[in-house]
Design a protein around this nucleic acid. Sequence first.
RNA 1: GGCCCCAUCGUCUAGCGGCCUUGGACGCUUGGUUUUCAUCCAAGAAAUCGUGGGUUCGAAUCCCACUGGGGUCACCA
Length: 461
Amino acid sequence: MTVRTRIAPSPTGIAHIGTAYMALFNYAFARQNDGEFLVRIEDTDRARFVEGAEQVIYDSLDWLEIPYTKTFRQSEHLEDYSAAVQTLIQKGHAYYCFCTPERLETMRKEQQARKEIPRYDRLCTHLPKEEVQKRLDSGERHVIRMKMPDNEMISWDDLVRGTISINTKELDDQVLMKSDGFPTYHLAVVVDDNRMQISHVIRGEEWISSTPKHILLYRYFGWQLPVFAHMPLLRNVDKTKMSKRKNDVSIPSYKEKGYLPQALRNYLCLMGWSHPDEKDIFALQEFIKVFSFSRMQTTGPIFDVKKLDWMNGKYIREVLKTDEVETALFPFLPDDFPQDLLPKILPLVRERLVTLHDIGPLTEFFYHDIHPTVEELMGKKSSMSEAKKYLEAALSTLEKSFEETEMLAMVDSKGWNRGAFFTTLRVAVTGRTVSPPLFDTIRVLGKQLTLSRVKAAITLC
RNA sequence: GGCCCCAUCGUCUAGCGGCCUUGGACGCUUGGUUUUCAUCCAAGAAAUCGUGGGUUCGAAUCCCACUGGGGUCACCA
């Protein structure tokens, strides 16, 4: 059997991190089995359709370096869904329903008031054929509903959860075809997965309860059933399904915030799955090689940015090569960043970067004017006169040499406290109390700028 | 509420009947390296394996109940 997997995102807004999560596992499983990973656009909801959202999804997958094959938009295959639903009607598995949204609404409210499960009351199930035809001919608005068996156990062997059984009596007569002529998800997903010969449906846990509907449809159509794998859902801190209200769920937003696609991808691999050797850091190729559903956790993992941050820093300082980091950093360099200096500056800040975005704040004193205050120059250990004394001595030493050993010798010969002295000099040169190693910094800064900053600091005291 | 899924440190997880008075990672604390921060290294706190029953010579691991959490019940996907 050829393994074919897919994701079917809807272009309704943001490119969701959950989509990336599903894409990752679908892709890995397909590749592992020499299969194919496809993307189909689920655009049957015209009310929520957002122009351009589709491209953002593709861009996000590209950014994450997850290869895929584009297929089609569901809106391009409308006639297939009507053809499919017609065979269902002929076989008696679907029927026309003329109930208005208003009637359904009041019906639901009444049911809820009576504490019943809200569901369609099947008013239109027994409409005489002639009446149905007449109302269709007159152009009355209608939907087509699936006729659910009354009491039938539907079971399947889920790849991550084992056997799951649901009785059809729990299921509603699902709308398959909307009054605007577009199919609902349930019809479209079955028709399209069959058309694309999807062998494994790997999707979120949220679909478990509608899977019986899909299985029934496969059966009615006489199509080969795919294998189902329901993955755990990514959660917010409060354990609810990860949502944009409580979390940043937009893939492009992680890109903008300076996360590396490799790090985000690696982190996502660890959500619900664990490496057989308990490794945390591994490449996509390795994931493909060692992935297995048997190592899948069924509990929904909480998306924790703290660990993502650590992983991102780890990738910046250890996993990526220097030129790869430089390339990744490029879009995050401030406009006035002296790019020719990047190879010299990067080693000074590399292990201090959590996100690529940190490059600006961490390096701006190299190319921006600094404004140290007297308080900062004094630090916690010195007085104003001491600071001045330090700086004057530092200045005359620097005029002779940029060697750190020279400075150290000078400080020690005077019997000064190294910490206090260097704090003052650091603030004078970088404008901040925290910086990369001072003499490395000074060498990048150059003699002229360093000396002028020290002189400027002296006049402050 | 009905149905379905789930339940090991704060978080991500290992564990699939004895090797576990639970191992790793993040985070946290402390110490070391260091003129600051970060890195790196070392140590530590942190789960009576949700609770209660079984099964078994033996259970985090199997079974049941309860509790708790989540998902789903749309002409949204």
